[in-house]
Design a protein around this nucleic acid. Sequence first.
DNA 1: AATCAATCGTGAAATTCGTAACGATTTATA
DNA 2: TATAAATCGTTACGAATTTCACGATTGATT
Lengths: 205, 205
Amino acid sequence: MKTISRKTIDRALLYIRALENLLKEKRDKISSSELADITGSSDVQIRKDISFFGKVGVPRVGYETKRLKDILENFILQDNIVHIALFGVGNLGKAILKYPGFQTDKIKLVAAFDKAKSKLSKEINGIKIYPVERSAELIKKVHAEIGIIAVPPGSSQEVADIMVKSGLKGIINFAPNCISVPKSIYVKNIDFSIEILSIFSHTQL
Amino acid sequence: MKTISRKTIDRALLYIRALENLLKEKRDKISSSELADITGSSDVQIRKDISFFGKVGVPRVGYETKRLKDILENFILQDNIVHIALFGVGNLGKAILKYPGFQTDKIKLVAAFDKAKSKLSKEINGIKIYPVERSAELIKKVHAEIGIIAVPPGSSQEVADIMVKSGLKGIINFAPNCISVPKSIYVKNIDFSIEILSIFSHTQL
DNA sequence: AATCAATCGTGAAATTCGTAACGATTTATA
DNA sequence: TATAAATCGTTACGAATTTCACGATTGATT
Ligand SMILES: NC(=O)c1ccc[n+]([C@@H]2O[C@H](COP(=O)([O-])OP(=O)(O)OC[C@H]3O[C@@H](n4cnc5c(N)ncnc54)[C@H](O)[C@@H]3O)[C@@H](O)[C@H]2O)c1
Ligand SMILES: NC(=O)c1ccc[n+]([C@@H]2O[C@H](COP(=O)([O-])OP(=O)(O)OC[C@H]3O[C@@H](n4cnc5c(N)ncnc54)[C@H](O)[C@@H]3O)[C@@H](O)[C@H]2O)c1
C-alpha cells in the first residue's frame, strides 16, 4: 500500500479550494493543465498527485469537477468538521474571530479565551470569550481539535502547555517564537516577519 | 561556487530569530544541538546549513551567538530594510497595521491603501491610509518592495495587478484564492483555512 | 603531555520529490 | 470506420534534500 505524502496533501487542499471556486462558476469539467494554471502547479504534478486516488479522470476530457473535489475531500477530510479554539483576543485574535472562513461547513471556531478581564464575557461574531482557566473544560465539551495561539510571544509557551493539557492535537502559532510540545502534537508556526523576510530574500537572490 | 537553497534560507531565518532571543538572554554561545531543540530542526541539519557560510563554529564549543547571527543576517539580508505596502485595511489589515513586528529595524510597513472612502485619511499606528489610486505614486516614493494583500478574494487579482504596476517585487496574499502575476514577481499565499485543514489532516493521518 | 569527551564539518548513502517520456484511452471527425 | 488530437496514468529518471557515518578539532582533565 502506497502512502500519500504530506506535500501531496497540502497541494490537494489547494486543488479542493480551486475546485470549489470552479463549481461556483458551474464549470463541471477541468483538465489537469487548467487546474495547474489556476493553482500555480504543473499539469504533471497534478496528475501525479491525483493518481494516488486511482483513475479519476478520463482521457481527452479531464476531470469531473465535483467528483474530483469529493474524492479529495473524502480522503483528506472524511466529512469531518474541524473545531478551533482561539487563545488571545487582541488585534489579531479579533480579526480571526470575525473571519468568515472560520465559520463554514468544514471549519468552525468554537471557543475563544483570553487572560485579560476586560476581554471576557464579550461576544464577537457570536463567540463568547472565556477566561483561560476554563479552557480545558470547555475545549473538551465542544470537542475542539486545533488551537490558535494569538497571544504575545512571552505567553506562547504557557498557552501551548494549556492547549496540550486541554487535549488539542494541533496548534497554529502566530507568536514569533518557537514552542515546545510533545511530539504527538503537530505545530505549525506562521511568523509574518519571517514570511516577509523570506519573500524579500526571494526577490533579492 | 555552490548556491544556497531556498530551504536553507528559510531555516536560516528561523535560526536568526532564535539567535536574537538567545542574545537577549545574554547567551553568547550555542551548540547545533541546542539550536536544534529550540528551532525544532536537527543538529546535523543546522550544521549542514551553516556550513554553507564557511567554518563558523568551533568544535567542543559551538557557535558564538552574535557572530553566527551576523553572518546569517549579512548574507541573507545585507543590511537591507524591507518596506511593506498594505492593501486592504479591514479586520486583518488593521491588526497588521498595529503589529509591532512590522515596525522594526529590519521591516517597516510604510504605506496602506484601501478602496473605501470611510477608511481614508485615518491614521493607524502612525501610518496614513490612502486611496488605491495613489498607490503607484506613493509606493515608488517610499520604495516599498513587498506588498500585502488583505482585501476580499473578489478583489485580490485587481489589487495584485496594481501591485505589479506599482513596482512591488514580492507579494504576500492572505486572500483565499490564487492570483496570477508575471513570473518575476514572487507570491506567497497564506490561507488560514488551508493551514487549519493541513494541520487537521496531520493529526488524523 | 596524553587522554577523553564534546562538537564541528563533510563526503557518501539514502530518501524524497518533481520532471520527463510515453503508452493508453477517449472523443471528434473525415 | 479509420485517423487525429487531446488528455490521462505510470514508469523511469534525475535533481534536490536529508540523514548517516566518521574524521578532525578543540578544550578539559589527569
Ligand atoms: N497583530 C498582528 O497582525 C500580528 C501578526 C502576526 C503575528 N502576531 C502575533 O500574534 C500574537 C497576538 O498579536 P496581537 O497583535 O493580537 O497582540 P495583542 O497584544 O493585541 O493581543 C494579545 C492578547 O492576548 C491576551 N493574552 C496575553 N497573555 C495571555 C495568556 N497567557 N492567555 C490568554 N490570553 C493572553 C491579551 O490579553 C491580549 O488580548 C502576538 O504574538 C503577535 O506577535 C500578530
Ligand atoms: N480576518 C481574518 O482574520 C482573515 C484571516 C485570513 C485571511 N483573511 C483574508 O484577508 C482578506 C481581508 O480580510 P478582512 O477580514 O480584513 O476583510 P474585511 O472585509 O474586514 O476588509 C477588507 C478591506 O479591503 C478593502 N477593499 C476591498 N476591495 C478593495 C480594493 N479593490 N482595493 C483596496 N481595498 C479594498 C475594504 O474596503 C476593506 O477595508 C480577505 O481576503 C480574507 O479572506 C482574513
